[in-house]
């Protein structure tokens, strides 16, 4: 990562001065990326912990009758399956199977979108039975909203790597962005595995 002071801007990653000067070692970057992502995910866990503890602190495990258990179970299955397809997408790009990578990434995005549509259906039903002002509704809207936002950012991330993968980026030795987005996607699923029983089962 070197740059030229004469210009207004520098291209990151380009090696534009070759005057035999000292070049800082950049071999740390893959390891740094991995640790950074894990720290970010760890830090996200605390955010979810804060909101989950708010749910238990205010209303305990109370769940109203009108909750749509069938739809919730269906969405859980969809999200868990999407984790598998995301994993397959990562594995495909690692072995440079570009067609499989495309298929599995698109599948993951579609699962994510199905989940989001389901969430919208649920929320619109929820406003009738347990609006945000009720004890259950308060935590319900907060947790679903928070998790929905994470699913949305995950879908956006997957769309970006799909787009760049289509343009020929990434390969067997250079797939960190795919790996990063997929790990994030697994985390979003894992968060749902905790939120789902909190809101529907206990």
């Amino acid at each position: 990562m070197t740059m030229d002071t004469d210009q207004d801007t520098a291209v990151i990653g380009a090696n534009d001065d070759d005057h035999g000067e000292y070049h800082p070692d950049t071999a740390f970057q893959p390891r740094a990326n991995k640790i950074g992502l894990w720290l970010f995910i760890f830090s996200e866990c605390f955010l979810f912990a804060a909101f989950l503890s708010a749910r238990y602190f205010t209303t305990g495990t109370e769940i109203p009758e009108e909750v749509n258990q069938g739809l919730a179970l269906l969405l859980t299955v969809v999200l868990l399956v999407s984790s598998i397809s995301a994993y397959l997408a990562e594995t495909s790009i690692r072995y440079n199977h570009r067609r499989n990578f495309k298929i599995f990434t698109i599948a993951t995005i579609v699962f994510g979108l199905i989940f989001l549509v389901g969430v919208v259906i649920e929320l619109s039903a929820a406003t009738l039975h347990y609006p945000p002002g009720t004890p259950y509704g308060t935590s319900y809207f907060m947790l679903i909203g928070l998790h929905g936002f994470h699913v949305l950012t995950g879908v956006i991330g997957l769309t970006i790597v799909l787009f760049l993968g289509n343009k020929g980026h990434y390969g067997a030795s250079d797939y960190w962005p795919v790996e990063g987005v997929v790990k994030y996607w697994h985390f979003v699923d894992l968060a749902w595995v905790v939120i789902y029983p909190t809101l529907y089962l206990f």
């Binding site: 708010a54 205010t58 907060m142």
Partner: peptide, 17 residues
């Protein structure tokens, strides 16, 4: 940040934490 998100939700989204 989370506590203030909850306060913000109470103010704008009608929740009642």
């Amino acid at each position: 940040a989370g506590a203030l998100v909850l306060v913000t939700m109470d103010r704008v989204a009608g929740t009642s934490f």
